[in-house]
């Protein structure tokens, strides 16, 4: 591998799309992935993330402008050469009977093996090392059709690692994983990019995760130019807010999460402190109230007794409950009663 420090993947007024007849999906894209950078490409479904990913990894030709891998322009290099520049993990599901993790990862050595694809000792060592690095030690002889999605995805990452490319591009690598597996794979990728000085770009629509973990974020939405920067700058410049603005959903710059709007919220007072009252507030927000500190007609008190939660309406105790679930249920009933009464 060439010295990755001097290399970067960059685009030069790139326009991407599926054909030249229709107007390009996105144009004037000027981005850069440096060695050791972990970048998340964020955008809603249908924003053109996959198209950009496919163009950057060489599956689609640029409609205009160009993609550079270091000194090489993507169109000018052969498949064999490109295989040593960028490796991919795609959304294509790999389900092959009787293929072991070792054999799968070893396919990543393809650009370096000879005519019959026979592995040298050096290749075997690299494959075993990569399997360990992604946390699949001991799985080498396990058949991939008997593994979970998360494990299989790690094996695909190991395949990309042994390909020894300065850049790794992943299309929605966590899309069909459950939350723990999702977090695990994202942390793994981040660690690999920093430790092994690989430039890693992945697309995702999981904004909250990307905010916490990415070195840089590229924002892509239909009909807008690509925005890029470190997560915090993008939050402060309101870019997130603009990109994800839709009816009923708002990005909250304070918490870095999405808020789900109800049209009109009934204000409700929360009395009490500590973790329990925080979660009561969240629960109340979720079901459509607006928790406030000032005094209003409806009040919830959180105390340290066994029946922690109590509802008060105009200073009058309406009931005490052991769980937030019971509280919400009762609150719904009471509120409806009061509304009918009014």
């Amino acid at each position: 591998m060439e010295n990755p420090d001097t290399l970067s993947l960059r685009t030069d007024n790139l326009a991407v799309g599926y054909d030249k007849i229709n107007p390009p999906l996105h144009q004037d894209i000027n981005v850069k992935v440096k060695a050791g950078e972990f970048i998340c490409l964020l955008g809603p479904n249908g924003a053109g993330k996959s198209t950009l990913i496919k163009t950057l990894s060489g599956f689609l030709k640029p409609i205009n402008g160009s993609v550079w891998y270091g000194e090489d322009k993507i169109e000018d290099i052969s498949e064999a050469h490109r295989a040593k520049k960028v490796s991919v993990v795609l959304t294509d599901r790999v389900e092959i009977q009787n293929l072991t993790v070792f054999e799968l990862v070893a396919l990543g050595r393809t650009p370096y093996t000879g005519f019959f694809g026979k592995l040298q000792k050096e290749d075997v060592d690299k494959v075993h090392k990569a399997i360990e690095e992604v946390g699949l030690a001991g799985y080498a002889n396990k058949s991939i059709d008997k593994m979970s999605d998360g494990e299989r995805q790690k094996a695909m990452v190991a395949k990309a690692l042994v390909q020894e490319t300065p850049f790794i591009i992943l299309d929605e690598p966590a899309a069909f994983l459950d939350l723990p597996a999702k977090i695990e794979i994202m942390q793994l990728l981040r660690r690999l990019s920093h430790e092994k000085k690989r430039g890693i770009l992945l697309s995702t629509h999981d904004l909250e995760m990307a905010l916490q973990i990415a070195d840089k974020i590229w924002l892509l939405a239909q009909g807008r130019t690509l925005q890029k920067g470190i997560p915090e700058d993008l939050v402060l410049s309101n870019d997130f807010k603009c990109f994800f603005e839709r009816e009923g959903i708002e990005f909250d710059n304070v918490t870095g999460t999405f808020l789900y709007h109800r049209v009109e919220r009934q204000q409700i007072t929360i009395k009490g402190t500590g973790l329990a009252s925080t979660w009561v507030s969240r629960a109340l927000y979720r079901v459509g109230f607006e928790p406030v500190l000032k005094e209003c007609d409806w009040q919830i008190q959180v105390s340290n007794t066994s029946k922690k939660y109590s509802i008060h309406f105009k200073e009058e105790l309406l009931g005490e409950y052991a769980s937030i679930e019971a509280l919400l249920e009762e609150l719904g009933k009471q509120e409806a009663l009061v509304k009918n009464f009014q």
Binding site: S57, G58, F59, S78, E79, A80, H81, R82, A83, K84, V86, S87, V88, L90, D92, V94, I96, L99, L104, L107, G108, T110, P111, T113, F115, F116, G117, Q163
Partner: peptide, 19 residues
């Protein structure tokens, strides 16, 4: 043998592996 092994992963992966 080599191209067939790489094609197990599907054409996209195979192309990315230099085939």
């Amino acid at each position: 043998i080599k191209p067939l092994n790489v094609l197990l992963l599907g054409e996209n992966y195979a192309a990315n592996l230099g085939l």
